[in-house]
Design a protein around this nucleic acid. Structure first.
Length: 304
DNA sequence: GAGTTTGAAACT
DNA sequence: CAGTTTCAAACTC
């Protein structure tokens, strides 16, 4: 893969036929590839636009790393990689860092509340430089934090491990707990209670059954726990108070079972989809009934 | 909704 | 690498 220059002076991606990983991602923008396998465009399409919009994170990393190492531009580029852009004195001092969830996950900001946001198309070079700075500092900065465990492990785990000191890893401050996974040996947390046999954790896992009362008793040897002292699900992720992860899992299991049944009966894809959708409707109906019951509301027949 | 707490990321 | 600062989200009141 190389970088080439268009007559407008804009840098765009250019690919060869080597069949690299990046090539796959670039299939998303075939209209930019000319007869010499160089990408052309009907208008300027800056590099970072393509990177940010189309490349999956591993490909983005690969590309940026290669750019950073100076490995790419030599063959097809007639000049420096970005001759028309001013050289920036250093990393931007504005909101363009790992603090921002959008930037950290490799996305552009969109409808966020950030101030002086530069993680957008209007600040492509600042964004590009910030990505390079982040990767210089940490080559895995844009990798997902939750990954598969060691070889053979099925359970996901935090790639770096958490460093919690005061939350006992049983609040959403803890990245492991927030991701609904146990802390592992690579965590450096103090006073961790987020492990398989932890009674405190088991108490929390029983939470959904008791949300109506505001107070509940866990295991017999544990003292009553007030709901206000327990970690709550993030409001934006959990709009229905009665939907626990167990409910979600059960609903998914129902849908899977329905799909398997359709497959066993050799149903057409269309019919299978219909059966799964109907099952989803039944699940949703049950969930809504439970939710309304939780809130002491009546359900009008035509609302479902 | 304002203020506090918390821990990741950045910085020194 | 350790200590400190900055930041945004979680949490409390």
């Amino acid at each position: 893969m190389v970088i080439c220059q268009l007559k407008g002076g804009t840098q765009v991606l250019c690919i060869d036929n080597a069949g690299t990983r990046e090539l796959k991602a670039l299939h998303l923008v075939p209209q930019y590839q000319d007869q010499n396998h160089c990408l052309q465009s009907d208008g300027p399409k800056p590099l970072t636009t393509l990177v940010g919009r189309f490349l999956p994170v591993p490909a983005k990393l690969n590309l940026i790393t290669q750019l950073d190492n100076g490995a790419l531009p030599s063959t097809a580029s007639s000049g420096p990689a970005f001759p028309s852009e001013p050289t920036l004195p250093g990393p931007p001092k504005i909101t363009l860092a790992g603090y921002c969830d959008c930037f950290a996950s490799g996305d552009f900001c969109n409808n966020c509340n950030c101030n002086n946001c530069c993680n957008n198309l209007h600040h492509e070079m600042e964004r590009f430089n910030a990505i390079k700075v982040c990767l210089d500092r940490n080559p895995e900065a844009f990798q997902p934090k939750i990954g598969k465990g060691r070889s053979g492990d099925v359970k996901p785990r935090h790639n770096k491990g958490c460093n919690c000191k005061r939350s006992g890893c049983l609040k959403n401050y803890c990245e492991c707990y927030e991701a609904k996974i146990m802390c592992s040996s690579i965590c450096k947390c103090i006073g961790c209670k987020n492990y398989e046999e932890s009674p405190e954790r088991k108490t929390l896992m029983n939470l959904p059954k008791s949300m109506e009362t505001g107070e509940f008793e866990g295991s017999h040897h544990l003292s009553p726990v007030k709901i206000s002292e327990l970690p709550q699900f993030r409001k934006d992720r959990r709009p229905f108070s009665c939907i626990s992860w167990e409910v979600v899992e059960a609903a998914c299991a129902c849908l899977l079972a329905q799909g398997e049944e359709a497959e066993k009966d050799h149903c057409s894809q269309c019919l299978a989809e219909q059966m799964i959708l109907e099952e989803f409707g039944r699940c949703l109906s049950q969930i809504l009934h439970t939710e309304f019951k939780c809130k002491g509301l009546k359900i009008e027949p035509n609302t479902l």
